[in-house]
Amino acid sequence: MLMSQLPRAAKLRYLPNGFRVLTPGDHVLCARSGQPIPLEELRYWSVAAQEPYATAELSTEAFLGK
């Protein structure tokens, strides 16, 4: 069987010091901008909201409720 090489969004559980992959994929979508974030580049997320963010600025905006 051939494996698909198409981009696929992962489902993650965001933890205080990392994340757990619930559904395999190669990226997640930023909760604020909708921009795809490759898993190896994911650095910002909210444990409380269970959301990923593409940049520190977007993470801060979400935290402040802007």
Rank of each mutant, 00 (worst) to 15 (best):
K66T: 12
V21C: 06
A62I: 02
R20D: 15
Y53I: 03
M3A: 14
N17R: 15
P38W: 13
Y53G: 02
G25A: 04
S46M: 06
L22Q: 08
A48V: 13
S33D: 11
L58R: 05
A48P: 08
A56C: 06
A31G: 04
Y14Q: 03
P38C: 15
Q50C: 03
V21K: 09
R20N: 12
M1E: 07
V21P: 05
Y14P: 00
E61I: 02
E61F: 02
L22R: 05
A48F: 12
T55Y: 03
R43C: 15
Y44W: 07
L29W: 02
H27I: 07
L58C: 03
G65P: 08
A10I: 04
P16C: 10
Q35S: 13
P36M: 02
L15H: 05
F19K: 01
E57I: 14
G18P: 00
K11I: 10
P52T: 01
L29G: 07
Q5T: 13
P24D: 15
S46Y: 12
P36K: 08
A62S: 10
V28G: 02
V28R: 01
L64G: 02
I37C: 02
M3I: 12
I37Q: 06
L29N: 10
S46L: 11
F19G: 02
E41R: 09
A56I: 05
E61R: 03
Y14E: 04
E41T: 13
G18Q: 03
S33G: 04
P7S: 13
Y14M: 09
S33N: 09
Q5S: 14
P52H: 01
M3S: 11
L6I: 11
K66L: 15
M3Q: 09
V47T: 10
R13D: 12
V47C: 07
P16M: 06
P24C: 10
W45I: 09
L15E: 15
C30P: 01
L6V: 09
R43M: 10
Q50N: 12
R20K: 12
T60L: 15
Y53V: 01
D26M: 11
E41A: 12
R32F: 09
G18Y: 00
R43T: 12
V28D: 03
Q50R: 01
R32N: 07
R43I: 04
M3R: 10
L22S: 04
K66E: 15
G34W: 07
L12P: 00
P38G: 14
V21G: 05
P24Y: 12
L64K: 14
R32E: 13
L2E: 04
A62G: 07
D26H: 11
N17L: 15
F63Q: 08
G25M: 01
L6D: 14
P24V: 12
G18F: 00
A48Q: 12
F19S: 00
E57Q: 13
A56F: 09
P24G: 11
L2Y: 04
P36Q: 03
Y14K: 11
E57M: 14
L12S: 00
S46V: 03
C30W: 00
E57F: 13
A54F: 13
R43Y: 11
F63C: 06
L64P: 02
V21H: 06
Q50G: 05
V28H: 03
W45S: 08
L15Q: 14
E61A: 08
C30F: 00
Y44D: 03
Y14R: 09
E41H: 13
L2G: 08
P7D: 14
R20F: 09
G65H: 07
